[in-house]
Design a protein around this nucleic acid. Sequence first.
DNA 1: CAACGTAGCTAATGCGTATTAGCGCAGAAA
DNA 2: TTTCTGCGCTAATACGCATTAGCTACGTTG
Lengths: 331, 331
Amino acid sequence: MTGVSQATVSLVLNGRDDGSVRIAPETRERVLHAIRTTGYVADPVARRLAARHNRILGVFTYEPVFPTGTGDFYHPFLVGIEESAERLGCDLLLLTSAPVTDGRRRIFHDDNRLRLADGCVLLGRSLDREELGRLVAEGHPFVSVGRRDDAGGPVPYVGADYPVATATVVRRALDAGHTALAYLGQGAGPESHADRFAGYRTTLEAAGLPVRHEPTADRTAADLLDTLLAAGITAAVVEEYADGAAIAGLARERGLAVPGDLSILALGDPTRPAASDIEFTGFRIPRREMGWQAVELLTGLLAEVPGTVRQRLLPCQPVDGATLAPPPSPR
Amino acid sequence: MTGVSQATVSLVLNGRDDGSVRIAPETRERVLHAIRTTGYVADPVARRLAARHNRILGVFTYEPVFPTGTGDFYHPFLVGIEESAERLGCDLLLLTSAPVTDGRRRIFHDDNRLRLADGCVLLGRSLDREELGRLVAEGHPFVSVGRRDDAGGPVPYVGADYPVATATVVRRALDAGHTALAYLGQGAGPESHADRFAGYRTTLEAAGLPVRHEPTADRTAADLLDTLLAAGITAAVVEEYADGAAIAGLARERGLAVPGDLSILALGDPTRPAASDIEFTGFRIPRREMGWQAVELLTGLLAEVPGTVRQRLLPCQPVDGATLAPPPSPR
DNA sequence: CAACGTAGCTAATGCGTATTAGCGCAGAAA
DNA sequence: TTTCTGCGCTAATACGCATTAGCTACGTTG
């Protein structure tokens, strides 16, 4: 159309104006005009193949991205991710094709489109350590949403500061007069659980109080409640919101007052749908902010911005709630 | 590693076994072994460049994908889209980079990654007709979630059958004895609104009743309620759930009974956050199913499956609700 | 007038794969 | 022995762009 070479079009298209390349303003205008009238857009695939990057960020989740069963726990993360991506002019590639093997999605399989993206954000309660290690080893740029232990190298992440948030909540209980507390949940396994428990443990140890821990896996609310009451526990620190809701509901059914007879502290937002109109004392995970910063961090890594902090812990927001009261006076 | 050519690796990788190509089982095994040990994965970009498709589906929304302000109205669509994509082994490319011009996102801009995907799902209340026309004209495979009028050609879509759903709701009101109804909302503009109004109009006309219509734009709930009462309306058919909630709330504040004094029929789920504990009589939009089928249809188009129905209307699910009662006996 | 510089552009190449025509070779047929 | 046949594989090319060395034409300088 313009009698100009493909190279020139490419140069104009990319607005190359640096010292090494010069295009006559008149030619440039002619080409731009042709581009405008034809609506020509460079093929993003070829572009990526040649240029090695394309402003596409992968998003991998170990659970469905748009969850139905997890009470939309992940939704706020994605809101933050999307906002940030939009601001930075990036597209998001949801790696939904990852096949489920042994009950979980796998990043690495024989047709993964991971490398189509410049980098990748990882989301999920527990990431597969082997896959994480491989990401590190192969040098794929990525950021985890949620703190992760090293996996053959430091893992870049944007996490929530569960130790501090949990410690703060526990200290509130101590300040209210509680001396018999128990941690309900795994307290181990995924970093998010271990971190909570660590905050709980150190706070109680510092106060010289016993560190009680009740696992919840495969136990009924009734069993748990019985155990707590038998042990004289006055404040339950629950890892999972849903467990807190179940116990609170049951306690009230039995005529016990929450928090009058039993205080309940929830360590974060519901990850499973939990029907409850109670507002629990505890904290909120800055999910949107975490998603937002994860993308920020990832693009920072990609641009190799010097001085980028690769591991960030964000503070959680305390929630006063209505489930903490002084312990009942001993009978 | 195996002393074999790149072409052979490609053939093995793609499991080519058809008559035209033959690989000795032994060689094949050697190559596969090398692939396994090195964890080699073909570059998806180069693959796409050469093969012209890559099982990536674009998702374009005219509002943010993970909405905060729209009360998650779009979320169920995305759940369906993701489920379907996962089942089909497709990844999703969220076109979040689309810049906002004149208050809305634009598909076509000078760096759109649209063509990176094999096809595209479009989501949003009202799609830009010009852009829609261009998609059709340029032959981009796409499917709209929600019915769309032709745009320089038929638009493939998976929509909700608003005419029938609305007609059904209105007929319920007629059966309950109402003769003074009014439609509250735009009733025009986006197809979804026009379709609702069409269902309303035809039903009333068939019954020989007047077709009243009150626009809601820029009007307060008080103004609307006054107008309805002054006109002796006994049943309000509201396009927007949130408007229904506002009017119902206000009516009750004023001591009116809903539905005793005024029945309110909602034409679908909330698109704006609406705090209301009322369950409105009306219908539910099969959002998840729509998303699901949109992806199905799109992959059908891409595979050029013969006999693919390109325009589908899905039935809405009636909701009995608690806001329809016989009209009050005239005073 | 020759050597040199510079602005403006193009030819050529690489990115990593899929595809296809066709080559070499071994065994069968003549 | 020669010709034929089909199997197993490879060389070469296309895909559409970004990049860069280098070419041409037109001053400029000594």
